[in-house]
């Protein structure tokens, strides 16, 4: 209960800065944001709640130490207390300040480990999205939808259209259906990258020669943004992630369109060479 109450504080503060609600959710940071982005998947909700819980405990600890220090400085400065005591032991105190932190840690660990095991629970996925990291863009493949495959490259500032956020917009967002368990397979074609979408609590390294797996289920339709989260070279800051989540029927319509637009190009490295050439120039 207390947890719910405290969850209102950052939400309330966020509310102060939120723009007028759109029909669709747009999940990225707002200016002067004080707290996490709103959770929009079941794992994200668990992570968000856990973080609120931890914040409460941590603030209490910091305020407690601050209060003690203020009291000590007022009561025991040399003017107020010219003769120092000689106490250097108090067994009861030492036992208490060992046992209480242990208790606090247990109180933290139980919900934390529960959330950890919950996120690991692989519910059966209805579809798979394959994500491949490249220097410096993401490639997406839909192995269950006729191998639709495309690259998702950042839109340069001069090409941005109205309403497209700078450094977060890509030419081909990845489309996913809402309320569907999606298996995510992550790998890389070169160095280690990291595919991250904060509002969905996704963050997993993509490594060459290895496939990582996680899952996501997006609660509501909208735009979800993230950024590469592992230093991968000069344009590390310029390979964003943009997921467009659609209701299932609209997603099916998109799939039909995409099969035509992104006819499988048989793994040919054409787009790679184009991008590398651009990236050779160190400026964006």
């Amino acid at each position: 209960m207390l947890k719910r109450l405290f969850a209102l504080i950052p939400a309330g503060v966020l509310g102060l800065f939120a723009s007028v609600a759109n029909a669709d959710t747009v999940m990225r940071s707002k200016p002067w944001q004080l707290w996490l982005q709103d959770p929009k998947s079941p794992s994200a909700e668990a992570v968000y709640d856990l973080n609120v819980y931890l914040l409460v405990i941590e603030v209490v600890i910091v305020l407690f130490v601050l209060a003690l220090m203020c009291y000590i400085l007022l009561r025991f400065n040399e003017k107020a207390n010219p003769v120092p005591s000689k106490t250097t032991h108090n067994t009861l105190l030492e036992v208490v300040w060992t046992a209480v932190p242990i208790l606090i840690l247990v109180v933290i660990a139980v919900p934390s480990l529960k959330a950890l095991y919950l996120a690991d629970h692989t519910t059966d996925a209805e579809m798979t999205l394959k994500v491949t990291g490249n220097q410096w863009y993401w490639s997406y493949t839909y192995p269950d939808h006729d191998e639709i495959e495309f690259d998702s490259i950042i839109i340069e500032e001069e090409d941005l259209k109205e309403g497209q956020p700078r450094l977060l917009s890509v030419d081909n967002p990845v489309y996913l259906p809402v309320g569907t368990n999606v298996r995510l397979l992550l790998s890389s074609n070169d160095v280690i990258h990291n595919w991250a979408v904060p509002s969905l609590a996704i963050k997993l390294d993509t490594m060459p020669g290895r496939t990582n797996e996680t899952w996501v289920s997006i609660n509501e339709p909208g735009d979800y943004y993230g950024m590469c989260s592992e230093l991968c070279g000069v344009n590390h800051g310029f390979m964003p992630i943009h997921i467009k989540a659609l209701p299932k029927e609209e997603f099916a319509k998109w799939v039909a369109k995409a099969k035509v637009e992104f006819a499988s190009n048989d793994n040919a490295p054409k787009s790679t060479t184009v991008r590398l050439a651009k990236a050779d120039v160190a400026t964006r």
Partner: peptide, 22 residues
């Protein structure tokens, strides 16, 4: 702390405009 909670990654020379304040 705030820009990190809001999602700003490390080791980037430029950032989305929302992180400008912090």
């Amino acid at each position: 702390h705030f820009s990190g909670l809001a999602g700003m990654p490390r080791r980037i020379p430029d950032y989305p405009d929302a992180y400008a304040g912090w």
